[in-house]
């Protein structure tokens, strides 16, 4: 059992939890992920490590409430426990280059943030572009500011700082003469796809972080396979970071929807059950 030491709502949909998990905290690095199971009947879900504290032995996860598992996880309070917490899994991000652009889209900022921090701490110049739907969805602004040289927040509707898409912002920065060795894009699959289309035009190496369906996270099930440059790779042991220009995004998007009907049903059943219990 793994204790929830801190729980914070970052916005109405996104929750931060600091979990006591000393073995994971001891050596996890930016880009790696964990797999957790909330309770005995729960499913195993992968979440990328958002932060860690080696001294305290804690790992921070940030997740969006999208289905039953994240819903019941969000319902857990400080001091309560999570059943299982395995990690670190996957390969750590390679920290290289002199100047990089890191892009986070929505919840993807929770993963872009530790990557930016790792690059920044290694002395790499970091431009961090963080895109959100609107003002209400902005997360981690203070943390991100400290993890880069320049933070560019953009919103789809212009309700906060600047109305732009992350791709517009990146193109603007490139056109202003910024020369990046590397672009890292983390966010919704469609966003990553369009960032890659853009950076391909500029011949700019781009790394994306995949978070596909998986069960064990150790290479056994093969559910997380992605086609990279025509080869089958397993996100859990070969990734989760991959060269974005080699990924078949349409395939990844299709595979991510494999259980959407079951997931929706499961969420509805859960809500229904909660309503019934609430009537007592």
């Amino acid at each position: 059992m793994y204790k929830i030491l801190r729980r914070e709502d970052l916005n109405s949909q996104v929750v931060l939890m600091e979990i006591e998990a000393p073995i994971v905290a001891k050596k996890c690095k930016a880009g790696q992920f964990i797999i957790l199971r909330v309770n005995e009947e729960g499913e195993r879900i992968p979440l990328t490590v958002a932060d860690y504290n080696r001294e305290k032995g804690t790992v921070t996860i940030i997740f969006q409430i999208v289905g039953k598992t994240t819903q019941i996880l969000a319902e857990k309070k400080e001091g309560e426990y999570i059943q299982d917490f395995l990690g670190p899994l996957g390969k750590a991000s390679e920290i290289e280059g002199k100047k990089v652009a890191i892009i986070g889209g929505g919840l993807g900022c929770a993963i872009a943030y530790p990557q930016a921090k790792a690059f920044h701490e290694a002395g790499v110049e970091v431009d961090l572009i963080a895109g959100f739907r609107n003002k209400d969805f902005v997360i981690l602004e203070e943390e991100m500011k400290k993890a880069c040289n320049r933070l560019h927040i953009v919103t789809d509707d212009g309700s906060y700082i600047e109305k732009a898409l992350v791709t517009n912002k990146l193109e603007q920065l490139i056109n202003e003469g910024n020369e990046y060795d590397l672009v890292i894009a983390i966010g919704p699959l469609v966003m990553m796809k369009f960032v890659c289309l853009l950076t391909k035009k500029y011949n700019l190496k781009t790394i994306v972080s995949m978070n596909p369906i998986m069960i064990d996270g150790t290479g056994m099930c093969g559910g997380c396979r992605v086609t990279v440059g025509g080869e089958t790779k397993f996100a859990c042991v070969d990734g989760p970071d991959f060269d974005g220009h080699l990924i078949d995004f349409d395939e990844v998007i299709r595979r991510s929807k494999m259980y959407s009907i079951e997931e929706r049903q499961s969420m509805e059943d859960h809500k229904h059950k909660c309503n019934l219990e609430g009537m007592h």
Binding site: I215, D216, M220, C221, G222, G223, R225, T227, T232, D248, E251, R254, R255, K257, M258
Partner: peptide, 16 residues
């Protein structure tokens, strides 16, 4: 066609 939805490894299917 091996990446189509509905293609599993036996490991994945059995583990589920």
């Amino acid at each position: 066609g091996e990446s189509l939805n509905g293609v599993y490894s036996a490991n994945e299917f059995l583990t589920r």
